[in-house]
């Protein structure tokens, strides 16, 4: 399964990473090298094998329904690049 340039661009867009045109061929060949490396997995017999869901066999603990955190809007936006009145600000989103 070789990755072509169009696929590289599609994946980059899905991952929201801007690609310069000049980067595409190089990245495609790197990705193909990695894909070639993982290609040998196709040879493994996985008939009837369950995919791993958790390495440690234990039961998920649940949290009681208690409010333990809040009213820390200052903290929440402390590292934000742009804020107004405790809102995060982004370029206008058009729906």
């Amino acid at each position: 399964m070789a990755v072509d340039h169009a696929t590289v661009r599609r994946i980059a867009h899905l991952a929201r990473i801007k690609l310069e045109d000049a980067e595409v061929p190089h990245l495609a060949s790197e990705l193909n090298a990695i894909l070639a490396f993982i290609e040998e997995l196709a040879a493994v017999d996985i008939e009837g094998v369950e995919p791993m869901t958790s390495v440690t066999p234990m039961r998920m603990k649940e949290r009681p329904d208690v409010v333990t955190m809040g009213n820390i809007a200052d903290e929440i936006v402390a590292n934000a690049p742009a804020t107004e009145d405790h809102y995060f600000v982004v370029p206008k989103v058009v729906e």
Partner: peptide, 14 residues
């Protein structure tokens, strides 16, 4: 083809 297969192989490794 990739992720599910890899997680199955992980089961085999374990």
């Amino acid at each position: 083809a990739y992720y599910v297969r890899a997680q199955k192989i992980r089961t085999l490794i374990k």
